[in-house]
Design a protein around this nucleic acid. Structure first.
Lengths: 163, 163
DNA sequence: GTCGTTCGTTGCAGACCACAACCAAATGGT
DNA sequence: ACCATTTGGTTGTGGTCTGCAACGAACGAC
C-alpha cells in the first residue's frame, strides 16, 4: 500500500543478494570473520558474554536454531574450551553454559578481527549512513519476522517456552 | 575511520542477524518465497529471464556458486521442465540454458507470491525508507564483496581454524 | 508414587556447498 | 594435420548446517 511494486521487487532482490553474499563470505572468508572460533561460535558465545550463563535452549532460541543443533555446536565449543557446563541448581535437567576465559578471549580476538574487516568494507561510509542502514535493517528484520507465516514458535512465544 | 566502533558493531550484528533470519525463512516459509520452485530456482532462473539464454558457468558465476553446484541444480530444473538445454552453436562443449514457458510461468507465480508476502512485511514502510534501504543495501553489498579477500591465501593457512 | 511435561542428547535424513577427477570439445603451436 | 594445452560441464566424494523423531532423565502436579 505504501511502496511501489518496483521498489518492493528491488528491495527483496537486494535482500536475497545480501543473504547470498553473506553465506559466501561465511564459507570463503571464515577466518576473517570468525577467527579461531567455529563458524557458529560467535552466534552462541555472544549471548553468553552479554547476558551471562544461560541454558542450551535459551541460546538456541536466541540464535534461532533448533535445540539439537545448538546442543551439537555447544559440545564442540565445550571441547575447544570456550564454554563450561554447570548444572542448573534450580533444574536438574538443564545445564547452564558459561563462557570461559578462553572463550571470552577468542570472542575478543574475533571481534577485533571482524572490526578490521568491517573497517575496510565500510571505509567509504559516513557515520550517518551506517547508522541509518542499521536502523532500517533492524526494522526490516523485525517486520519480516512477524510477516513470516509459520514464524518460529520459540521466538514468538513470550518467554522461550520451547515447543 | 569514518564510522564509530559502536555503529560498526551494531551494523555487523544487524547484518548477521538478517542473514540468519533470511536462512530461517528460506527453510521455514519456502513455499511462500519460492512457490513450486526449488529454493535455488529463483536465483538461477531469474538471470535467464532477464538476459536470455546463458551457459551453466555464467549462471554459476552470477549466483556466486561453484559450477558443479549449478550443474546439479540445473539438472533438477531441467527434469522439472523449467529449463531446456540447447547446444551452443559456437562452442560444442557448452550448452545454453533456456527458460521454458513453464519456467517463466513458475517464475511469475513465485514473483506474485513473493510480492504478496513482501507487501505484508513492508506494509508499514514508506516509499522513501524502502528505497533508501535498498540503495544502502546494494552499496553495502558491493563494498563487502570488494572487501572480501577472495580467500585463497587465508584459507590455506596451516593454522587456520577448523570449520 | 504415578503421569504428563520439559530439557538436552543422539540417530537419522535432507539441502547445499566445494574440490578433485574426469570426459569432450576447442584452441594454438609446429 | 598433429598433438599438447586449455576450457566447459558432469560426477564422485566429503563436509557443514539444519530440522525432526526418539530417547532417558528430571521436574511438577496430583
Amino acid at each position: 500500500m505504501s511502496i511501489s511494486p518496483d521498489t518492493r521487487d528491488r528491495l527483496t532482490a537486494s535482500i536475497a543478494q545480501l543473504i547470498r553474499t553473506g553465506r559466501q563470505i561465511s564459507t570463503r572468508a571464515a577466518s576473517q570473520l570468525y577467527g579461531e572460533l567455529p563458524s557458529y561460535g560467535w552466534t552462541l558465545l555472544l549471548p553468553l558474554e552479554q547476558d551471562g550463563d544461560q541454558r542450551c535452549s535459551a541460546l538456541a532460541a536466541r540464535a534461532g536454531i533448533d535445540v539439537s543443533v545448538a546442543s551439537r555446536q555447544l559440545a564442540v565449543l565445550e571441547r575447544s574450551g570456550y564454554v563450561e557446563r554447570h548444572p542448573d541448581p534450580r533444574d536438574g535437567r538443564a545445564t547452564l553454559l558459561r563462557l570461559t576465559p578462553q572463550g571470552a578471549e577468542a570472542l575478543a580476538a574475533t571481534r577485533a578481527m571482524r572490526a578490521d574487516w568491517a573497517l575496510a568494507a565500510l571505509s567509504g561510509w559516513s557515520e550517518h549512513d551506517a547508522r541509518r542502514l542499521t536502523d532500517l535493517l533492524d526494522r526490516l528484520r523485525a517486520d519480516i519476522e512477524v510477516a513470516v507465516p509459520a514464524a518460529p514458535s520459540a521466538a514468538r512465544e513470550p518467554l522461550g517456552a520451547g515447543r
